[in-house]
Design a protein around this nucleic acid. Structure first.
Lengths: 274, 274
DNA sequence: CAGCAGACGATCGAATGCAATCAAATAATG
DNA sequence: CATTATTTGATTGCATTCGATCGTCTGCTG
């Protein structure tokens, strides 16, 4: 095989799999280890790949969504337990509308593979379901915001106006007595459209969000059916939410071990408030 | 540090970077190599990570689209040169509508980072542009086909009916004297909608596609402005296409070295047919 | 045809990573 | 408080991978 073609196939293999072991490549391309090594060195040189002990990583890969690249997503642990508690109250065969945001993304991860219909305007979320044959995915189109990877704008809203779902999972930049706040004007409009399409409305927000306002008011608390947060939420806020109408679910930081946290919706101890 | 927190941070680090070397983790978490190994074994057990020699890969990540996972996409080399030739005839500041398919995906890769407006119904394509601030991205929503990752159905088509673009890049399962064929009924409808939204229509198809029919006729040849293929296309077909109206561009397998193939749109020698 | 350059494959010592084992530290339990 | 699990860290022998070197093959050029 001519070197050009080999290296070309090499790139393809690496790009496709994200990672390839060296002996794997030796077998598949039918050349010696030395040759593969030399090719890999060249690829690393030019920046297409990154070598590791025993393999290569693709380096020219997909650019990542900025929001998901932060070093330490704020209150990560809390968000994960909230996500686990939320996934638990969603039943199979439902039609679920998922908002963008890191918390809803965690919810989505836990829902992946379940038998559901999922509607979303978030590309990161959609990617989780795109190849899941057990989950039907409806993507809301529109203008894609580069920072967050969510679809926005009039097209998105109009598509939403024709849909109806059983459950909507919304995120929020802040929650005050007046209701839900969001930091982006266009997104607020889209979330309002989501509320109109919704049956049951679930809002996921870690305790740091309460008492914080943001750019625009999305809706009042009375439009929300369930609020899921973590146990760090003060008694006062718990009462405020309950008085305004929504049910409140507080997810505890679980005491279980690593297995349940990462993979299992049963990880969180959910405390139903009265 | 309690084990729970350490493992949690471990997941975060791995998820964030996609890959982490073992000694890296030892340093950053300040625990012994043995401990990291054990944690990693647990993560692998539960499927969150995949171990390699000297490191870990994140496994809970994005599931991949089936069509892009084939071992050897047919005529890969040809598709890439076609893509390079196509990217060359698209100017900055245009509004480009990109169809799904592996060839259009290659075109998309070459367009990423350029100053364009891109409209697409393909999630793999959209992912390439999602975080590119220099490229505006409009995603056509709709029902997502799990195998190909493209949006289909009435919502998609209706959204298309309200858009107009300067250039449309279409793929095809087959091209005969009657015109463009496609293998999926719903996709054919969507592609027809794309043609209605189009200014200039470019069809990308490697030479093996010619003379092949498929499930449904999408459109006649007269609706096409430019056909881009590879130099393997027979004289007869070249004449057939030209007689029917479209301009024809044949991309040669380039003689350059590996750099230009992987990164540069200038790789292909494009031969204009008269 | 001779000479030369580049690509390839094989080999080997050095470096690195791996799994298993055991002892110490820490946490849980009665 | 004593005992028992669990978790962690260190050690050891073994397997894998690495990079460098060298000889061979191929194709080009004069």
């Amino acid at each position: 095989m001519p070197g050009r073609e080999r290296r070309s196939r090499l790139i393809d293999i690496i790009r496709l799999r994200g990672f390839a072991a060296l002996d794997e490549l030796v077998r598949e391309l039918g050349v010696s280890e030395s040759t593969i090594r030399r090719d890999l060195d060249a690829l690393e040189e030019q920046g297409t790949a990154r070598r590791t002990h025993g393999g290569v990583l693709y380096a020219g890969g997909l650019p990542r969504i900025a929001e998901f690249d932060e070093k330490q997503p704020a209150n990560w642990e809390a968000k994960r337990t909230i996500a686990a508690a939320t996934a638990k109250i969603i039943d199979d065969e439902e039609t679920v509308l998922l908002d963008g945001g890191t918390t809803t993304y965690e919810v989505a991860r836990l829902l992946a593979g379940r038998s559901l219909q999922v509607v979303t305007n978030s590309m990161p979320v959609a990617n989780l379901f795109a190849s899941e044959s057990r989950t039907d995915l409806i993507l809301l189109g529109g203008f894609v915001s580069p920072r967050t990877g969510v679809c926005l704008g009039p097209y998105t809203n109009e598509l939403l106006s024709r849909l109806h779902v059983t459950t909507t999972v919304l995120s929020a930049a802040g929650i005050s007595k007046q209701g839900l706040f969001n930091a982006q004007l266009l997104l607020a409009e889209t979330e309002q459209a989501m509320l109109r399409a919704a049956g049951k409305v679930i809002v996921v927000a870690d305790s740091s969000k309460f008492g914080r306002k943001s750019l625009t008011l999305v809706s009042g608390l009375e439009a929300i059916d369930i609020v899921v947060s973590d146990s760090g939420l003060s008694k006062e806020w718990q009462q405020t939410i309950l008085d305004a109408g929504p049910r409140l679910i507080l997810a505890d930081i679980p005491a279980e071990d690593i297995d349940s946290v990462a993979t299992d919706a049963t990880a969180a101890n959910t405390n139903m408030a009265p």
